[in-house]
């Protein structure tokens, strides 16, 4: 049993900010655009280092997406930054027409996603963004699990030709994955824990919760395989089918609506290719509310005990 520990907690949005600065140093085609949330998105360092490659867009996200598409047309690589709600639902048609259908090389970087945004409440806690983005043809959807992975993903997406949605969050969260992780590759699932009884597929902040649930279950003689699906699109079907062929039951875990998210994606694949019992750890057709991230994960049943219960339930359905 591999033990996952952390010595520090950091917000994934800082991983984005640090990654953007680093990739900006390597590639002068990279430009940053932000809709009046430079501090929240941690884009200040990039702005300071490259003032002529940073574009303040004001609180006008629709225009920001179009400007990014125009910059990409001329060969730049724009990274847009705003909250996940304003980066997706608010500007869906702009992304659909000017970016996805037009095949523009724009990186849509979205912070404060999910319930763990916390006290701002349901207006800002978007739980539909993965679904919205994965439905768009040509869109790559990446949801990294911790600070290190978000930084690495921010750098890696510069090399993908085409639009990318990069989702991260606000709260301080355990940093448990290595820096410059050689096992990280966009589009490749990461097997973090091997096990034979059940597979948990998780993304974002809930990867940590899944690993902790697996440790507790190990003490109860349940061997859990934990796979980090940091890339929801394109989906690493091969790795998923390989694991499920072995374990024959599945739990998915995400900070998103059950409709349209990671769980939905996995269920579609398995329904088509390997019908398997699945339990979903996700928000079930409701909006969030104000509260601390810890309280919210508990109230909406995305916490470690909820994952443990889901594993036990799905094992009975095997």
């Amino acid at each position: 049993m591999k033990k996952f520990e952390f010595s520090v907690k950091k917000d994934t949005r800082s991983g984005f900010g640090d990654g953007l600065l680093e990739v900006g140093k390597k590639n002068e085609k990279i430009v940053g655009l932000c809709a009046d949330l430079t501090g929240s998105l941690k884009m200040n360092a990039f702005q300071k280092q490259f003032p002529n490659r940073f574009f303040q867009c004001g609180i006008a996200e629709a225009n920001m997406m179009g400007v990014a598409a125009g910059m990409a047309t001329v060969g730049l690589i724009p990274y847009t930054g705003t909250f996940a709600n304003f980066a997706t639902g608010r500007v869906y048609d702009q992304i659909r027409q000017s970016i996805a259908y037009s095949q523009k090389n724009v990186k849509i970087c979205a912070s404060h996603a999910g319930l763990t945004l916390g006290e701002d409440g349901a207006t800002h806690q978007i739980l539909e963004d993965i679904g919205l983005m994965k439905m768009l043809p040509h869109m790559t959807v990446v949801v990294p699990a911790d600070y290190n992975q978000t930084k690495q993903a921010t750098i890696a997406i510069a090399d993908i030709q085409g639009p990318v949605y990069l989702r991260f969050g606000r709260p301080s969260w355990p940093v448990f994955l290595p820096e410059n992780d050689s096992s990280f590759q966009i589009g490749k699932a990461q097997i973090l824990q091997e096990g034979k009884d059940v597979t948990i597929f998780a993304c974002g902040h809930l990867v940590w919760n899944a690993l902790k649930a697996a440790e507790i279950l190990y003490e109860q003689n349940i061997a859990v395989e934990v796979i980090n699906i940091h890339t929801i699109k394109p989906l690493d079907k091969e790795a998923i089918l390989k694991s499920v062929s072995k374990t024959r039951c599945v739990v998915t875990a995400e900070e998103h609506q059950k409709n349209g998210g990671l769980g939905d994606t996995i269920a579609q694949l398995l329904a088509e290719q390997l019908p398997t019992p699945i339990e979903f750890i996700a928000v079930n057709d409701s909006f969030g509310q104000s509260g601390t991230p810890a309280e919210l994960l508990k109230v909406y049943h995305l916490d470690i005990p909820d994952i443990i219960d889901a594993v036990k339930k799905v094992l009975t359905r095997k």
Partner: peptide, 14 residues
């Protein structure tokens, strides 16, 4: 309403 923004971005990139 979208093409104008794209043109603005292209002009800035130039």
């Amino acid at each position: 309403g979208q093409g104008l923004s794209v043109a603005v971005g292209a002009a800035q990139a130039k």
